[in-house]
């Protein structure tokens, strides 16, 4: 019992540190990828290839003055960024990150909490993440913040439905909610991947995942040209940084979910071992998010609602219906 607790705590700390570091590295990658796609060079001057830019940004964020606006609701204003970051990491707790491996004769399963309802837990924890932007926007005495938080509530509530419905069809095929079962169900190589059986569900999940992580075609919450920074208008320093870390952790979570549910998880592909396979898949989905950001403009709020309720949701329900009939 004690060994289990110690092991869980160690795993949680490792995941927390690694994902936070990756979030910092993710900003660098995002700037570089976007720059190359737009025929620029991106960060160049700090360190080799601009790599120390991450460190410079980190120092700047940590040392920046922490301003709380005069009429803001102090307590909620200060707690809200922590909610975003915390829920993003809680969602990661139920994800099997790598295959089992052995260190010093001690077998480690790289999953913090092996729940038998893992996939719903991840979706639920990510859905609770909307309290961060929602409360942040309401607590600051700023009209952009209010608009931002209203948009947050609408966007997250609507796209949660699509995420849940799109992932229901693969759940029906596998017959389990455990992400490890999903991984094991696709153990037979590339031809066994869920994406060949459920291409529609995959596309729906990807679109809804972009919306839930607040990525570009749907990043209406902090759309510069319309609402300044939305919920993050009044934030500075590390509180703003926590929103950022939460967003990048959510991107990594969605990338893991997509590769575990639809792309064969951490099963080895041919000569590529399992842990490398999943790193490649997750990096691909991360890159896809940046690629889409460079390629597509934003949507309007009314287009966002139209897309969710009149296009994606009917398709998702039809997909579930057809899957059910085929399975019967």
């Amino acid at each position: 019992m004690d060994a289990l607790i110690i092991e869980t705590v160690v795993k949680a700390i490792v995941v927390l540190l690694v994902i936070s570091a990756l979030a910092g590295f993710g900003t660098y990658l995002e700037r570089k990828v976007l720059a190359f796609m737009q025929r620029r060079l991106g960060p160049m001057h700090v360190g080799p290839f601009g790599l120390l830019q991450i460190l410079a940004d980190g120092i700047k964020l940590f040392t920046k003055e922490d301003i709380v606006p005069q009429h803001a609701n102090r307590l909620i204003f200060m707690v809200a960024p922590a909610i975003t970051a915390a829920t993003a990491f809680i969602a990661l707790a139920a994800i099997p990150l790598f295959p089992e491996f052995t260190i010093f004769g001690y077998t480690i399963r790289p999953i913090i909490a092996d729940l038998n309802v893992g996939i719903l837990f991840v979706l639920g924890a990510m859905a609770s993440g909307l309290y961060g932007p929602l409360l942040a926007g309401m607590a600051q005495a700023n009209k952009w913040g209010i608009i931002g938080s209203a948009r947050t509530a609408i966007l997250f509530l609507s796209y949660e439905v699509v995420t849940g419905l799109s992932i229901l069809a693969p759940i029906m095929i596998v017959g389990s909610l455990s992400l490890i079962d999903f991984n094991n169900a696709q153990a037979g190589g590339v031809s066994d991947w869920m994406v060949w059986k459920q291409p529609v569900a995959f596309v729906l999940f990807l679109i809804a995942g972009f919306a839930e992580t607040n990525r570009t075609p749907f990043d209406l919450l902090e759309h510069e040209a319309e609402v300044i920074s939305g919920y993050a208008t009044e934030y500075s320093g590390m509180r703003w940084g926590m929103f950022f870390i939460g967003e990048y952790a959510n991107m990594i979570t969605v990338a893991f979910l997509a590769s575990l549910v639809f792309f064969g998880g951490f099963n080895p592909i041919g000569f590529i071992p399992g842990f490398l396979a999943i790193i490649l898949k997750v990096s691909f989905f991360f890159f896809l998010m940046l690629w889409v950001r460079a390629s597509w403009p934003h949507v309007r709020p009314d287009q966002l609602m139209w897309l969710c309720w009149k296009v994606l949701m009917p398709i998702a329900i039809l997909n579930i219906l057809i899957t059910g009939i085929v399975l019967l």
Partner: peptide, 23 residues
């Protein structure tokens, strides 16, 4: 099951809607 239903429905939707009304 009830744990997840509570998180998904109670936390993820019901309280959000009541905060939305306050907003």
């Amino acid at each position: 099951f009830l744990f997840l239903a509570q998180i998904l429905v109670g936390v993820g939707a019901v309280v959000v809607l009541s905060i939305m009304i306050i907003l």
